[in-house]
Structures are given as structure tokens and as C-alpha cells.
């Protein structure tokens, strides 16, 4: 992972990203027609030229089975945790108790870090308060935790989310890293610059 922002990206990831924008455009119109695809294409090119952002580093590896696993699991998590938080709101005996945890991720990819942060923020009960990009650390606010064990459980959950994502779209390097036993890699995150 190098923090340079102006790096050129391969034509293949360029095409993938552009078609992503075109598909979104078609979704917004609710139908796929030649006109929609063409206007979408023009808009996608104009947008990516006008609003220049740091290059997205696609790893070039996609495992559709794990993508499916990730989304199904995300849906289940959202449903389960929404009900939990909803119950917490109504429960008259609820005493507030929360924590802010630093969670060092294994991945060195900005994209995967971003998606992990999105995924754990989507699941009720946790919000990403701050991010340390250089060292891949997420600072997460967790609601309704009472003991050390709750904290460790939550940490493991985040690692599991990260692992599912890396298995789905991560590079071979990242896959190797998340497959290591936890204590080997997590004791010294960061310091890769």
C-alpha cells in the first residue's frame, strides 16, 4: 500500500468503475434502454474527469461466492441488530453503557477498509468515530457493552466482517494476511510505510 494519490490505475479497473456508475444511472431511471446506457456513459466519463479523486485500487480478484456470503450475512446482521437496538430503546431496565474501541485491521487496502467501516456502521450498535488510515485502525463506538468479554466479542465480529470482505474482493496478499492466526499479525499493525 502506498499513499500516493496520483497513481495511474489499470484500464480494467477503470472500466469496472465506469460501468458501476452506468449501472447506478440505469437503476435510478428504473429501466435499461440504449438511451439510458449512452447518457450514463457520457455522465460517468464527465463525472470522473471533473471530480477527480484518488485512484481506487481494485485488487482484480473477485470471488462471487464470498460476495454473496458477505451480503447475506450483512442483511442478517442488519435485521438482527436493528431489532436489538429497537428493543433496547423500549426496554425500561436499560442502563446506558458503551465503549470506544480501537480496532486494528489486517488489510492494507483503502477500499476494503472503507467497506469494512461502512459494513460495521450499517449494523446497528456500532458507529465508526474515527479512522487512522496510515495504520488501518478503526475507532468504533459500541453501544450496550458491559464487560471485557462483550468487547472482545465485538472485536472478533469486526475481524470476521473484514475477513469476509477480503475473501470476497481482497488481493492475494490480504487473503494471506487474514488467514494467519490473529496474534501473529495483529500485534504489530502499521509500520508498513
Amino acid at each position: 500500500m502506498s499513499p500516493e494519490t496520483g497513481r495511474r490505475i489499470s484500464a480494467r479497473s477503470q472500466i469496472v468503475l465506469l460501468s458501476g456508475l452506468v449501472i447506478l444511472w440505469c437503476l435510478v431511471w428504473g429501466e435499461v434502454t440504449v438511451l439510458n446506457v449512452l447518457t450514463g456513459l457520457v455522465l460517468a466519463v464527465v463525472i470522473s474527469l471533473l471530480f477527480y479523486l484518488p485512484a481506487i485500487d481494485l485488487s482484480g480478484r473477485v470471488n462471487f461466492w464470498f460476495v454473496l456470503v458477505f451480503f447475506v450475512r450483512l442483511l442478517i446482521d442488519i435485521a438482527r441488530a436493528s431489532l436489538e437496538v429497537a428493543w433496547l430503546v423500549i426496554d425500561p431496565r436499560y442502563k446506558p453503557s458503551s465503549a470506544i474501541l480501537a480496532i486494528p485491521l489486517d488489510t492494507r487496502s483503502d477500499l476494503i477498509m472503507m467497506f469494512t467501516a461502512e459494513a460495521i456502521s450499517l449494523v446497528p450498535g456500532s458507529i465508526v468515530v474515527d479512522v487512522d488510515r496510515q495504520e488501518s485502525v478503526l475507532y468504533v463506538h459500541v453501544i450496550n457493552v458491559r464487560s471485557e468479554k462483550d468487547l472482545e466479542d465485538f472485536r472478533d465480529e469486526v475481524f470476521a466482517t473484514e475477513k469476509r470482505l477480503v475473501m470476497a474482493i481482497g488481493s492475494h496478499d490480504d487473503v494471506w494476511r487474514v488467514r494467519q492466526p490473529n496474534h501473529l499479525t495483529r500485534s504489530h499493525t502499521g509500520g508498513t510505510a
Binding site: 442488519i78 435485521a79 458507529i127
Partner: peptide, 14 residues
């Protein structure tokens, strides 16, 4: 911080 949990999340499922 806790209010954000209630305000932004269950409504995704909703």
C-alpha cells in the same frame, strides 16, 4: 453518540 445509534440505524431496516 448513543442517540446516533438509534437515529441512523433501525431505520435502515425500516
Amino acid at each position: 453518540l448513543s442517540r446516533l445509534h438509534a437515529a441512523t440505524k433501525p431505520q435502515i431496516l425500516g
